[in-house]
Design a protein around this nucleic acid. Structure first.
Length: 274
DNA sequence: GTCCAGACCG
DNA sequence: CGGTCTGGAC
């Protein structure tokens, strides 16, 4: 497909808006245009089901109501608030962004795409989402629900579809008068398709990668270690006993977690970094 | 077992 | 480019 026919685009828009009118989802981050709250939601929603984010989002906003508050908070308190979401490094990213924005921009999140994308944990998709939902800018971005929606409708038989090809149609189909709601509608429509047809469409993306099992993985081991360190000041010896990991495995993860800015050694103990 | 409003390193 | 990262839902 070189260029989706204009009539096909219109049919798609009609289908998506029609679905949205009857089945729109009401998430707390859809009730605000506050850039900080939008940012928190978008970071939380990376690779994490929306339903699972709702409660954590509310608690996080309550505890850290703005960038300045988050900037002042300890990393430990932020990581504790993050427990249960996964991808703990996202919490570190958010805190880093909060500090940067507080120092450089007086606590006001910039809307420029280049500045957003130069921040840790913000890539193409998250920058586009923040600009769309907080600033109502007509951005072009692709995430998993959008990918599913466009593949299902515009590439019904094709395999190994590139995001760059999807983006071209996203741009043409974009509602420039109301990008915020258009993207909500797209995501709701894509999420519905996934429930109805499973992951069949997403598997035809060139960027699709099946996830390896979590059980028994190094990811599971890391999270176990970090959780223990978040709970109390804990010696290396006690970590060894409580995790049941080998000395080599434990040392490996402790080195990684230190390098990534989660923890630091303090004598015979490991504690959360500042 | 497989997935999720992706980002980032090598 | 591929590999990796979290943890709960189903």
């Amino acid at each position: 497909m070189q260029r989706a026919a204009a009539s096909k685009i219109r049919a798609f828009q009609k289908e998506v808006w029609g679905y949205y009118r009857l089945h729109k989802r009401g998430f707390p981050w859809r009730k605000t245009k506050n850039p900080y709250r939008i940012l928190v939601s978008e970071i939380m929603l990376q690779q994490t089901q929306a339903d699972r984010v709702v409660l954590k989002y509310k608690e996080f906003i309550k505890k850290f109501p703005n960038l300045r508050a988050l900037s002042k908070a300890s990393l430990k308190s932020v990581l504790r608030a993050w427990q249960g979401l996964g991808y703990n490094r996202r919490a570190v990213h958010l805190k880093t962004i909060a500090r940067e924005v507080t120092v450089r921009f007086g606590g006001k999140l910039p809307s420029e795409k280049e500045i957003l994308m130069s921040s840790p944990g913000i890539g193409q998709s998250t920058a586009g989402a923040v600009r769309t939902f907080a600033f109502n800018k007509p951005e072009v971005f692709v995430e998993t629900n959008i990918r599913t929606a466009f593949i299902h409708f515009f590439f019904p038989k094709k395999q190994k579809i590139l995001d760059s090809d999807i983006s071209k149609i996203v741009e043409v189909a974009l509602d420039r008068k109301n990008p915020r709601e258009w993207y909500w509608a797209l995501m709701d429509y894509g999420a519905m398709l996934k429930k109805a047809h499973g992951n069949a469409a997403a598997r035809r993306s060139a960027h699709y990668a099946r996830q390896s099992p979590f059980k028994g993985s190094s990811r599971e081991q890391r999270s176990k270690i970090l959780k223990m360190i978040l709970g109390e000041k804990i010696s290396t010896k006690k970590l060894l006993a409580k995790t049941g990991f080998s000395k080599q495995i434990l040392a490996h993860h402790l080195a990684d977690l230190s390098k990534e800015g989660f923890i630091r050694r303090s004598g015979n103990y490991f504690i959360v970094s500042k």
